[in-house]
Write a protein that binds this DNA or RNA. Structure first.
Lengths: 328, 328
DNA sequence: AGCGTTCGTTTAAACGTTTGCTCAGCGGGA
DNA sequence: TCCCGCTGAGCAAACGTTTAAACGAACGCT
């Protein structure tokens, strides 16, 4: 910048003013500076700007991983919004670990991000609510941090699960199995609660298998069903990942859907509609979730003291063939 | 930091020395500093460190989008490696636009990233080779920047395509259609070249439809096949996205695979193995691609002047049912 | 003629670190 | 005895930018 100032025959401040388009620079001076900037191929150093100024024009995103389409699509939406605001995005992953989450949050705050969009790793025991992060605007996505005053935007897991189970009940199923995960994750437990509630309302017994993220174990469970008298006639899978594992296992076993066992999964996925049968799912508004989360963060950056928002988006039961529905 | 120094009764330099674990600090002093750090909940400012020091301990990743599993899985792998090196990752997307790519690269360099991992958006006309970026170590992934001295790690698109086509030929197909994309993308064109070469070697005519990323258009093309005498008996889809669109369209049309038309797609995808029929694909080592790219970058950071590496990873034809193969 | 305003620009300081140098103390070899 | 080298620690400057204050000039007003 010093070179530019010298070449344009002005002080560094004037250069800074020209760059930031702030007032009080004569037309002619401005032109001279522009020319110097061009000639010297000047590129501002965002780090220095961030160090001096109040903002870094970057946000951090913390999520379990980029492998699961749900998370990566969410990240994509956040990225898009950030780009519109001319913000950069730092992305880190927790692999569902609360400790990692804390470390990553510290790292990002250390890098002076202006705000954080987080898919919290841990069910309630998160450190994100600590005093330490009080000064960093933070939006929780998909899962809350309990007892916190943080903005959050969730999905109606409970209602989605209830809708799925009730639909299976309408098809006449009495024994519906819930395939969950061994880890404690808020969304999964909310879906489990919905499942239980719907079953109870129908006066039916519940059956849960909670290691759906382990394909081997899932296969074992499904295999064991074949020799049982009271084997479930329908399955509700708690997530996209678990759906894939379950469907994979069912395919290996040659179990026919929906004749031998009906199937509904939480979270829609690519090609679900062209499988034979097509897979009935509870669809979450992933794109909107990420987009609204980012919007919320930028609003929060604008008004740090506004009341925290707690938004819950509706989900949609997408009827296809695997639940037993027939289409012309 | 000043507060910490004061509390520990030392100078700021000593604090800095303790933090960086550099030599010449007495045990007892070190302890005092540690205690002060703890008590004041000191968190270093990475921006300031980066501004003064030679490194920012962050890298930038530029890719088309986070929507396609190929890219997001790649990003995930890069992230993992970066985490092992205690580096942060800035991720930006180009949406396949060369202009956006240039802007994003400038933004990241402005943020003083130590290096860049790029999936170049544009076929040859990239600006990444410009003098402007000469000082930033850069790794090209999946696609090269032509005539550049940049490190790059690609996949053997040509051989993969040839293997797929030759396999279809072995099944007795004579009329094999290539479904490509309307955009010019290096990988797609390499696959197209492989397809053409294999067809020519067998003395067969080629047929290409190049708007596979437009589902509507793909549907139209496939529909038009039904009334043709010389309709292709096999389809080779050029990418994961195009595969999904093509399979979707075929499902809508009720075309049976592989009886009416055999199918092979480039890029493996979730559930391809449990569809009916299971989908034969050319599988790319996505995970390894991202991981090796990041490894390469960190090596490059170590030795900026080593000779540029040009790596090509092999791909694998995964035989499932859609090509016409039968399994017990 | 004096004075407050506004415009255009400069100068000085600050942001939170690290680098380079200085300096004091202390022990060992010539 | 003198000088050198090593250890432990402090001081000042620098990184590239922005903020705050200051400054001179031109202007209109009383």
């Amino acid at each position: 910048m010093r070179d530019v100032a010298e070449r344009a025959g002005v002080g560094m401040m004037t250069v800074s003013r020209v760059l930031n388009n702030t007032a009080h620079v004569r037309e002619e001076t401005r032109d001279r500076v522009y020319r110097a900037l061009e000639e010297l191929q000047y590129r501002p150093n965002h780090l220095a700007r961030a160090l001096r100024g109040a903002r870094s024009y970057s946000i951090g995103v913390i999520l379990p991983d980029l492998h699961d389409p749900f998370f990566s699509n969410c990240a994509h939406a956040i990225n898009s919004v950030a780009k519109q605001h001319s913000y950069s995005v730092l992305i880190t992953t927790t692999n569902e670990g609360a400790d990692t989450e804390l470390e990553e949050a510290r790292e990002l705050v250390g890098r002076q991000v202006d705000g954080l969009v987080v898919i919290p790793a841990c069910n309630g025991r998160s450190h994100l609510n600590d005093q330490e992060f009080a000064r960093t605007p933070m939006i929780c996505v998909d899962r809350p941090v309990l007892h916190s005053r943080l903005d959050r935007i969730l999905v109606d897991n409970r209602k989605g699960a209830i809708a799925a189970v009730e639909h299976l009940l309408q098809h006449g199923h009495k024994r519906i199995s819930f395939i969950g995960m061994s880890k404690h994750i808020y969304t999964i437990e909310a879906r489990l609660a919905g499942y239980k509630k719907a079953m109870k309302a129908a006066n039916l017994q519940t059956e849960t298998f909670l290691a759906g993220e382990d394909e081997e174990a899932t296969l074992g469970y499904l295999k064991s069903l074949r020799t049982r008298r009271d084997s479930p006639t329908a399955i509700f899978a708690c997530s996209g990942l678990v759906s894939r594992h379950t469907l994979h296992a069912l395919a290996i076993l040659g179990t026919s859907i929906p004749d031998q066992v009906a199937f509904i999964g939480f979270d829609d996925f690519d090609l679900a509609d062209i499988m034979r049968p097509a897979i009935t799912v509870v669809r979450q508004p992933v794109q909107r979730l990420g987009q609204m989360a980012a919007d919320l963060l930028f609003k929060r950056l604008d008004k740090p003291n506004a009341a925290p928002q707690k938004i819950t988006l509706p989900v949609e039961l997408i009827l296809r063939g695997s639940c037993g529905c027939h289409f012309a």
